[in-house]
């Protein structure tokens, strides 16, 4: 039977991998058992997709002798996953992929966690955010839309987003501040359903990541107004008959000076050795060179900034300070009313 063949091959490869692990020379550290790859978010979301893509690439190109398993720990807006890795101090067989909730969740809920409890490994990419409206609305630019929101008055227009007091709502709060107006922010569970709610005209706009809304854009249901980045996205391939990602203006160009990028980075538990960190940095570098990774980056129109080491740690530190300021400004801190 076919399935037993699969079992056998998996079994065989595991055995081979285990044997191979013993044969490794002693100088460089390598994983000696299955590596757990924690996703502090639910199945099917952006972080989950990226983790599973990395796992798939590692398996396909045989980049690691041990196997890698992806485990979702999404409870408490990701706090479950972060606390799990925090508790695994010194364990070199645990990786975690982060999104902005690494900053926002502890701030919003006072869960005892800080990114300094982890060891930064490598930033894989940054995720862009785009302001979307339904294609049947008359708004052609961010300026038009902001004017319409202002004209409608406070708490009239609805902005949909993923989760509460997380990246989408932070961006919404930043827009409100810059434009001097107020949205009704409606939180949904996943980016995919936010996009569909916008197609169904239940909300007026969203700040979906490119990958979450691209299908509806290409299907002529949604219209991108601007990207929340300092420069335009570099992808020039036509996505619709007339537009490429590169044709979307930055929000600043359209008179809405708001920038936000979301970290897609990899961390390990605290208290691991430099050898161990180096191993994963090397592994992830190899992952970034594969054609599958390049395809994923193009598909999701990611900002391909990728840094490691001290530079990465500094970046995270700066991002944390920025989030504290944004969250305070928006009144999203725990205990803040």
């Amino acid at each position: 039977m076919k399935n037993s063949a699969i079992f056998k091959s998996v079994l065989a490869s595991t055995v081979v991998a285990t044997l191979a692990a013993f044969a490794v020379p002693a100088h460089a550290w390598e994983p000696t058992k299955t590596v757990e790859f924690i996703v502090p978010a639910g199945t099917g979301g952006g972080a989950d997709q990226m983790a599973r893509a990395i796992q798939g690439i590692v398996v396909k190109h045989n980049l690691m002798k041990q196997s890698m398993v992806v485990i979702n720990k999404s409870g408490g807006a990701g706090a479950e996953g972060f606390l799990d890795v925090k508790g695994a101090k010194g364990d070199p067989h645990k990786l975690i992929i982060t999104l902005s909730n690494m900053f926002t969740t502890p701030l919003a809920t006072a869960v005892p966690f800080n990114w300094r409890d982890l060891t930064p490994v490598k930033m894989m990419a940054l995720d862009e955010f785009v302001l979307w409206v339904n294609a049947e609305t008359p708004y052609k630019s961010a300026k038009d839309y902001v004017a319409a929101v202002k004209k409608a008055g406070d708490s009239k227009m609805k902005m949909g987003g993923t989760g509460s007091k997380q990246e989408d709502q932070i961006i919404t709060a930043a827009i409100e501040k810059k434009a001097g107006t107020k949205f009704i922010y409606v939180p949904f569970k996943g980016g995919g359903s936010v996009a569909v709610q916008l197609v169904g005209k239940h909300i007026d706009s969203s700040v979906n990541n490119p990958i979450e809304a691209v299908a509806h854009w290409r299907g002529g249901k949604l219209r991108p107004l601007c990207v929340f980045d300092t420069k335009r996205m570099p992808y020039k391939e036509k996505m619709t008959t007339t537009m490429s990602w590169n044709d979307i203006p930055t929000c600043k160009e359209s008179g809405l000076d708001v920038n936000y990028l979301m970290l897609r980075g990899i961390f390990m538990a605290g208290g691991v050795t430099q050898d161990q960190v180096d191993y994963y940095v090397g592994l992830l570098r190899k992952v970034r060179e594969t054609p599958e990774w390049v395809a994923l980056m193009n598909k999701g129109a990611f900002n391909q900034t990728s840094i490691e080491g001290k530079e990465y740690a500094d970046w995270v530190g700066a991002a944390e300070a920025e989030h504290v300021a944004l969250m305070k400004g928006a009144g999203f801190m725990a205990g803040q009313k």
Binding site: G44, R52, A215, H216, A295, K299
Partner: peptide, 15 residues
């Protein structure tokens, strides 16, 4: 859905 995306298929009206 994640699988479709990784294989390079894009779920949506155009699929």
């Amino acid at each position: 859905l994640g699988g479709l995306l990784i294989w390079g298929l894009e779920p949506g009206p155009l699929l």
